[in-house]
Design a binder for these strands. Structure first.
Lengths: 352, 352
DNA sequence: GTGAAAGCGCTAACAT
DNA sequence: ATGTTAGCGCTTTCAC
């Protein structure tokens, strides 16, 4: 069994309380001599405070709960990584729950986090789950990556998905495209619904078509994007006739999917951007190494994570910190998939 | 404040102990009538046991610690996700620490996990750190993804990196390549060192060159692979003369890096596989959507994760479970980057 | 079948 | 400046 505080106290010839005072630098002062003696014993015995006991007594676990759809999607992988990094810097541990957008998993993890008395919560998934009948949520600092929270006490740090998607689509429109398809994740997922709405709104604003045959929903993965594209651009596995209803451009709601989209175009023998122009939303590093290079609406994950974490920790430290409500516009990073720049010579020769 | 067990007991007209018996199905029997009454009150009051208190008293936290280099690398992202999924199924929470291969971070997280009384540990990073002077590690079930553990009590579930790398290199040799470059992560990282050793051993076995000019170390990311390739294949940003010492093939230690490698080849105007053949190690889904399709040694992350988690949980459940020592061979998944298959027509026309 | 009670290891208010 | 002590909410042994 590990060394306990009482053992340290006994070995140092002081009371257990003094050991606590030394460890926590308070709430009472300790004479330098005693402090030195206690510290020596702590080191000698290799004493480590039991975090569970501190949590039970002290009421703080130095941990936060974090709900994310998954960590395979580079967008969320980066977000998670950044959040973890910030929390770690401040001495907080992140308890992560992968929800896969499944309401049951969301509620289960939410409950688990509350049972374990996390000091705060960040939702990258399932913000609406906070309406679930769980007690003790109102007293907890919560940050969600949504544009509107179910409860105003929940801080929100959102990406402006509707506007960002609109910008992406508008960019394609400027290249003269009217038949612009939309590849997105499940529309039940709020963020996906918003990006779809952005596509639709921007298309409708200039009387471009937004029919169902232009939209494909699929899993947010390379495979999903790939499948959606095959569905959208091909007839029985072959590209549809050029002068039919085949989209000449695709708006893709995520970088991962876009990677699968590029692959599908290649499989179908469709050139990007000449036959199909593509713009995605994300701006992850993965998008910077595709062939051809993706044009993408970059959403600054690093900044979002930093803001969310710092704000959450501020609310944890001071319960009176008012909730924050922000949203961020992405910015267009122009690559070679939209048609802005002609292909470089080396690209044209790539498979000559 | 949340409802406590005593409040439930009072409301149900029983003693706190009985509430525990009901909740834990033991260790004493409870009459059906009493049980029903208690359960009704629990539901009515929305009572949830305080996991911290249970942990302090019961000695089990229903959580495990997990050390991973990072979650941006799809290989580790998949591994982490699979481990989390298995643990979640068994009611365990995963505490994740991203180490970035930094010894300080590794030790800090290891200590944090011990302080928080995790029930077990999985190391995807820093297995050697278990030699660190931390108390209480010997009593804990530990699984590491290394081939040899510092302490025999540590279960090991390893990928056979040396052999897998050798197979990948041999495949390139069969295509007639002799000058085969090596792109890998930092050689201080054991897994990277093993893959480098595999490349070197296989090359030496047929008297192929293994000079320093054929090796490039870089961060395990797309950008890293990209930079390493530019260094290896170019002179001042241009490809080196075809008949010089430029490698005609590259062995790449990870899929992420390989994606950057492909991109670099494209930037340099080198065709894959005609000018440079490429084989990587990993077999992540990301590798299945590259252009051209990567040939890669697939290491079955899903299986590794399942084995590691199930074994760890078995050891947690029964301390007498003997440690497991396994390693797994990968298998070659042939794509288009090695030169096995000629390019499809559509590919040849891709940028015609 | 049920209740009483002793802690788990710690924090902090209250004594001295 | 330091010691004493009452819990935090729970599990489980021990009585009844």
């Amino acid at each position: 069994m590990p060394v306990t505080r009482s053992q340290v106290a006994r070995a140092a010839g002081v009371s257990p309380a003094v050991v606590s005072y030394v460890l926590n630098n308070g709430p009472r002062r300790v004479s330098p001599a005693t402090r030195a003696r206690v510290e020596a014993v702590i080191k000698k015995l290799g004493y480590r405070p039991n975090a569970i006991a501190s949590a039970l007594r002290g009421g703080t676990t130095q941990s936060i709960g974090y709900l994310t759809p998954n960590t395979r999607n580079p967008f969320y992988a980066n977000l998670s990584e950044a959040i973890e990094r910030h929390c770690s810097t401040h001495g907080y541990l992140v308890l992560t729950g992968n929800t896969h957008h499944d309401r049951v998993r969301e509620e289960r993890y939410l409950q688990t986090f509350l049972d374990r008395k996390v000091d705060g919560l960040i939702f990258a998934s399932g913000v609406s789950v906070v309406d679930a009948p769980v007690r003790g949520l109102d007293e907890l600092p919560v940050v969600g990556f949504e544009q509107a929270a179910a409860r105003p006490a929940i801080s929100t740090i959102a990406t402006e998905d509707v506007a960002d998607a609109g910008t992406a689509v508008e960019h394609l429109q400027r290249h003269g495209h009217r038949l612009i398809g939309c590849v997105a994740g499940p529309p039940q997922v709020p963020a996906e619904a918003r990006k779809i709405a952005g596509w639709r709104g921007q298309q409708q604003s200039v009387d471009n078509p937004t029919g169902d045959e232009l939209v494909a929903f699929a899993e947010t993965s390379e495979a999903g994007g790939n499948a959606a594209t095959l569905q959208l651009l091909s007839e029985h596995g072959r590209p549809t006739a050029l002068h039919g209803r085949r989209p000449t451009a695709l708006f893709v709601a995520s970088d991962v999917q876009a990677i699968g989209v590029l692959f599908a175009c290649y499989e179908l023998g469709l050139r990007v951007p000449q036959d199909v122009a593509i713009v995605s939303v994300g701006g992850t590093t993965a998008a910077a190494f595709t062939f051809p290079l993706l044009t993408t609406m970059r959403q600054d994950v690093e900044y979002i994570a930093a803001t969310a974490t710092e704000h959450l920790l501020a609310r944890i430290a001071d319960a009176d910190t008012p909730p924050l409500h922000t949203s961020l516009r992405g910015n267009l990073v122009v690559g070679l998939s939209c048609g802005c720049r002609p292909h470089q010579a080396s690209a044209d020769e790539y498979h000559a």
